[in-house]
């Protein structure tokens, strides 16, 4: 039986998987909760979802 490796967070940030992940800029983070921008996105996302729902309700043999 192989020896189990005990999980421990890497001691340096450069050794963590997260170091190689894409991260949002401050502007992107701001936009995520910006009320005027999110009102626009609310409308856009709803339209996109309604389109998918419409496409998916066409099942008939």
């Amino acid at each position: 039986m192989s020896e189990r490796k005990v999980y421990a967070p890497a001691p340096r940030v450069q050794l963590r998987d997260a170091f190689y992940a894409t991260k949002p800029t401050a502007w992107t983070r701001y936009l995520r909760t910006s009320l005027p921008w999110q009102l626009v996105r609310f409308a856009v996302i709803n339209l996109r979802m309604i389109r998918i729902i419409g496409l998916s309700h066409r099942g008939r043999s």
Binding site: L31, R32, T33, S34, L35, W37, Q38, L39, R41, F42, I45, N46, R48, M49, R51, I52, L55
Partner: peptide, 13 residues
């Protein structure tokens, strides 16, 4: 048609 984004609007939805 495959789309994704994160934001406050998603929480409202």
């Amino acid at each position: 048609r495959t789309f994704g984004e994160i934001g406050l609007a998603g929480h409202w939805i």
